[in-house]
Structures are given as structure tokens and as C-alpha cells.
């Protein structure tokens, strides 16, 4: 039942042998040793595992790896780097958003898609786009400031 699966992860081709029913999250974390998508619930209820699949924010904890064969996966680490940060990453540092930071993939990857599609979102649009994500430390005010700051930076 294990099969060869090819992906493109953060711009690089990747291959693994896995049960196609296994969630993408385990492929990324265990097989490809990418730590930044997190296991939060395994139920698509929190967002900590969010990656982009062909540009779309996707909960990797419930996405079978077999369903994303050949697709482009982008993780938080692939969104930007210290040398070439995504505006959201710059804004997050500027606003000092994290407490524990375990939830970051959900917020940043979802907000990145929002800003790509809606470069100047209103407060309401931001809150709607980020609905369903969880942050237990309560950094929501700083998240809102960071998304707005990033939207300004993109102009």
C-alpha cells in the first residue's frame, strides 16, 4: 500500500514512499524533515498545519499525501527567508506578534493568500479570511496589526 510520491516542496523536488492515505503533514514532518507545519489537532480545526498547495491555503493534517502528488507545496519556511522575507514575515517581526508561535503557519499562510488576492483588505475582510484559525496565547491584536502593516508594505 506504500507508493512512490513526488512533490515539489518549497521550490525543490521531493520524493517519498508512503501510504497515500497518510496526511501530507506527516510526509512533510516525518519523511521530509520539515518542522514548520505543526500538528495542532489533526482535524482541520486550528490551522497550525497550514501549507499552500498550488497557492491555496490547505490544512495538511487532513489532506492525504496521495491527493497532492506532483503539486507545489509551500510551507512557512518557503514563503520567505531572512534574506527575502515575505512582507507578512517582516510585519510579524516588526509587530513582535508571537507568544508561543506554534500557530504561526495557519495565520501567516492564510493571510498571505488573502493579501495576494486582496492586497488592501478591510478589517472585516481580514477577520473573515482568518476565521477558524486558533491562537491560544491571544496574539490576535498583534496579528491584525501585522496583516494591516503588511498590506501597507505591499503598496
Amino acid at each position: 500500500m506504500s507508493e512512490r510520491i513526488r512533490l515539489v516542496v518549497d521550490g525543490k523536488p521531493a520524493e517519498l514512499d508512503a501510504d497515500p492515505a497518510m496526511p501530507l503533514l506527516y510526509a512533510l514532518r516525518a519523511d521530509l524533515a520539515l518542522n514548520n507545519p505543526k500538528f495542532g489537532c489533526g482535524l482541520a480545526q486550528c490551522g497550525a498545519c497550514t501549507v499552500h498547495v498550488d497557492g491555496r491555503p490547505t490544512r495538511s493534517c487532513v489532506t492525504p499525501v496521495g491527493a497532492v502528488k506532483g503539486k507545489k507545496i509551500t510551507t512557512l519556511a518557503g514563503l520567505g527567508t531572512p534574506e527575502r522575507p515575505h512582507p507578512l514575515q517582516t510585519a510579524y517581526i516588526g509587530e513582535q506578534v508571537p507568544q508561543c508561535g506554534y500557530c504561526l503557519s495557519g495565520w501567516v499562510m492564510t493571510a498571505a493568500a488573502l493579501l495576494r488576492d486582496t492586497p488592501k483588505p478591510s478589517d472585516t475582510q481580514i477577520r473573515q479570511a482568518l476565521a477558524g484559525l486558533k491562537c491560544r496565547c491571544g496574539t490576535h491584536m498583534a496579528i491584525l496589526r501585522a496583516v494591516k502593516r503588511a498590506a501597507g508594505a505591499k503598496a
Binding site: R29, A33, N35, N36, K38, F39, T75, L76, A77, G80, T81, P82, P85, Q89, Y92, I93, Q96, V97, P98, G101, Y102, L104, S105, V108
Partner: peptide, 21 residues
């Protein structure tokens, strides 16, 4: 003074206990 560790978190580079191998 800002927290240095924020950048590590934001670039997905900070190891958490879940990442220990």
C-alpha cells in the same frame, strides 16, 4: 528591545519540542 526569537518563529526555523529527533 524586541525578542530575537520572533524571527526564528516567523521563518519556521525555531525547533519546538515536537521537532526533537
Amino acid at each position: 528591545i524586541p525578542q530575537r526569537i520572533v524571527a526564528d518563529k516567523v521563518f519556521g526555523a525555531l525547533p519546538y519540542v515536537t521537532d526533537v529527533k
